[in-house]
């Protein structure tokens, strides 16, 4: 860590957070199941096929999508490629270090990747040009710009918003040759996941932890929920624990909150 002091929360602030929570109140006046203010801007990177900046309270994150023709993976010759990469760059916080992606970056990339993949938001089987030879590869690149807590949900909102508004040049296959046309088409979209992260502080479960709340939380759990209230991903984080009852409650909260969160997403193919 560059600056360990940023990882320390004053005792008085910690006590304030805990004593407010005992009354079911939060330090920023939110309810236990409320997200911070969400602002999503799509399509501002001209050179990207799709892009979105998400502001979630004090957290800002950008996702850009680039699409190119690639060879399919040998074990999936009849599917396109989805690659998610997330970088917690030192621009975004004194707690992020320069250098190759660390554990937190890798976890974030892989959690977002699995959530998108399990929901099949990008229908990869429709991105095949010549089976075994040429498929479309969709690169989802996530960059933290300002870190104010709950990076997973912000990164996922940005990635889903960018995917939903992505356009790329249609390709046609003639005599075994791939020809790129001028026609701009959207990605084939399957089901649309939203990610809901819940922090456990003492015996309370709170949605969308801020940075200060993350510093005092025991553990966090992220549920990925599709439009039919199915769970398409889970990731528990931090060395804390949950009881069976807490997990059931967290799952119910996540399903409830996912409906409100979904309203913030741009309509499919809207750019």
């Amino acid at each position: 860590m560059n600056d360990k002091s940023e990882l320390i929360i004053s005792k008085i602030k910690k006590e304030t957070i805990l004593s407010l929570l005992r009354k079911n109140e939060r330090i920023d006046n939110r309810g236990l199941e409320d997200y911070r203010k969400i602002q999503i801007t799509t399509g501002l990177i001209g050179k990207a096929n799709g892009s979105a900046i998400v502001k979630l309270g004090d957290t800002t994150v950008i996702t850009g999508i680039k699409i190119q023709i690639d060879r399919p993976f040998p074990d999936t010759p009849d599917r396109g490629i989805q690659i998610v990469n997330a970088e917690l760059i030192p621009l975004a916080s004194p707690i992020f270090e320069p250098g190759p992606p660390g554990e937190d970056d890798v976890e974030l990339s892989r959690v977002v990747d699995r959530g998108l993949r399990s929901a099949e938001i990008i229908k990869l089987d429709e991105l095949v040009l010549i089976p075994g030879e040429k498929v479309w590869a969709v690169f989802v690149d996530i960059y933290a710009l300002d870190y104010g807590g709950n990076m997973i949900d912000a990164a996922a909102l940005a990635s889903v918003s960018a995917i939903l508004t992505t356009k790329y040049n249609k390709a046609i296959v003639e005599n075994g040759e791939v020809k790129i046309t001028d026609e701009q088409i959207p990605l084939p979209i399957g089901s649309i996941p939203v990610f809901v992260t819940i922090a456990k502080i003492g015996d309370k479960l709170i949605v969308d932890p801020s940075y200060e709340e993350e510093l005092v939380m025991d553990a966090r759990i992220t549920f990925v929920i599709d439009e039919n209230d199915n769970i398409t991903g889970i990731q528990k984080g931090n060395p804390g624990t949950f009881t069976y009852g807490e997990l059931i409650e967290a799952k119910n909260i996540a399903i409830r909150v996912s409906k409100k969160l979904r309203e913030h997403l741009p309509p499919v193919h809207s750019e």
Partner: peptide, 11 residues
């Protein structure tokens, strides 16, 4: 009775 790891993919 404390759960220390939980992950999921699929549906």
């Amino acid at each position: 009775g404390q759960i220390t790891l939980l992950q999921a993919d699929g549906r």
